[in-house]
C-alpha cells in the first residue's frame, strides 16, 4: 500500500486527513461511529479561556451545496477542557490540535501557554472567526495585525503553531506572508467566508445573528485558489481547508500545495465522511500507481 504518512512542521500524521475545528466537537461524538485512530488528526472545537455560551439560535442555514453557521465559539472554557475532555480523547491514536481563540492579545497568549503545557500536539491560532464581536476575525484581516498577533503569541507556544487564515481579506498572500514572518510554523486555510441567508417568505434573515460563516462544497473553488496563492509565496507547510467531501478533493488540495487537509462541513453532512475520504484517497494512490502521497504536494501541472 502507498505511504499515506505526512509530516507537518515536525508532527507526523498517519494520513493527511484532519477533522476541522467546530465540525468535529472534541472528537468524542464520533467515537461510537468509527475508530478515531483511523484519522490523521483532530482540530478541536475552538477554545477560549473562559466558558462561552455562543450566539442565540437559529445558528444554521442551508444554502445550495453549502451552509452558514453562527455558533459563536460556544465552548466550556480552556480549564474545563483540560480537566474533563482532554483526558478522554488523549487515548485515541491521532494528532490533537487545540484551536485557540481570544478577545485580546493577552488572552491569546495565556491560552497558548495553557495549551502548550498540556498533552495536545499542536496549536491552531484562530484569528478568522466571523461569528464573534471582538477578537476573532478582527485580528485576521489586516496583514499588520496578523503579523502582530502571531509574533505576540509565538513565544508562549512550546508546540508547533498553525495560524488559521481568513478568506475575507483583500490579498491572502500578504496575510500568509505576515503569519510566516510572525513565526507561524504552518498555515491552515480557509476559515469560513462571511455570508448571509434570507427567507423571502418571512422577509427575515434565517440566522438570529443575521450573518455567519459560509462553508461546504460550494466554497471549494475559492479555498483551492487561496491555497494555490499561498503556496506560491510561503515556505511553511499549508493545511488546506474548504469544501472537502471526497478523496479526490484531498488530492486537488495537495496538488495546489497543501501538505495536509482538514475536513469540516462534510462531517456534518455525513458522519462517516472522514474514514470514507481516507479509503478513497488510498484507492486513488493505488489506481494512479503513486507510492508516496507526499509526491502530490504542489505537483499541479500548469
Amino acid at each position: 500500500m502507498a505511504n499515506m504518512k505526512v509530516n507537518v512542521c515536525g508532527v507526523e500524521f498517519k494520513n493527511p486527513v484532519i477533522g476541522a475545528s467546530g465540525t468535529f466537537g472534541f472528537g468524542k461524538e464520533f467515537q461510537h461511529l468509527y475508530d478515531l485512530g483511523k484519522i490523521g488528526g483532530i482540530s478541536l472545537k475552538g477554545l477560549t479561556l473562559e466558558r462561552r455560551e455562543g450566539n442565540a439560535p437559529v445558528r444554521i442555514a442551508e444554502t445550495p451545496s453549502g451552509m452558514i453557521n453562527s455558533v459563536g465559539l460556544q465552548n466550556p472554557g480552556a480549564k474545563y477542557f483540560l480537566e474533563h475532555d482532554l483526558p478522554q480523547i488523549r487515548k485515541f491514536d491521532t494528532v490533537l490540535i487545540a484551536n485557540i481563540n481570544g478577545n485580546t492579545e493577552e488572552e491569546y497568549c495565556q491560552i497558548a501557554e495553557l495549551m502548550s503545557d498540556s498533552s495536545v500536539d499542536m496549536l491552531e491560532l484562530n484569528i478568522s472567526c466571523p461569528n464573534v464581536k471582538c477578537g476573532g476575525m478582527a485580528f485576521g484581516i489586516k496583514p499588520e495585525s496578523v503579523y502582530n498577533i502571531t509574533k505576540a503569541v509565538k513565544p508562549y507556544c512550546k508546540k508547533p503553531l498553525i495560524v488559521k487564515l481568513s478568506p475575507n481579506v483583500s490579498d491572502i498572500k500578504e496575510n500568509a506572508l505576515a503569519a510566516e514572518e510572525g513565526g507561524a510554523d504552518a498555515l491552515s486555510l480557509i476559515n469560513t467566508l462571511y455570508g448571509m441567508a434570507v427567507d423571502a417568505k418571512t422577509m427575515r434573515p434565517i440566522l438570529a445573528n443575521v450573518k455567519g460563516g459560509f462553508s461546504g462544497p460550494a466554497v471549494k473553488p475559492i479555498a483551492l485558489r487561496m491555497v494555490h496563492d499561498c503556496y506560491s509565496v510561503v515556505k511553511v507547510p499549508i493545511i488546506g481547508i474548504g469544501g472537502i467531501t471526497t478523496g479526490l478533493d484531498v488530492v486537488e488540495f495537495m496538488l495546489c500545495g497543501a501538505s495536509a487537509v482538514q475536513v469540516g462541513t462534510a462531517n456534518i453532512m455525513n458522519p462517516m465522511a472522514m474514514p470514507q475520504i481516507i479509503d478513497e484517497l488510498q484507492n486513488y494512490l493505488t489506481e494512479m500507481k503513486i507510492d508516496d502521497i507526499n509526491s502530490l504536494v504542489g505537483a499541479l501541472k500548469i
Binding site: T23, G25, F30, K45, P57, R59, I60, N69, N267
Partner: peptide
C-alpha cells in the same frame, strides 16, 4: 450527534 453546536 452533538458535535457542531448549531441546534441550541
Amino acid at each position: 450527534i452533538g458535535a457542531c453546536l448549531v441546534c441550541s
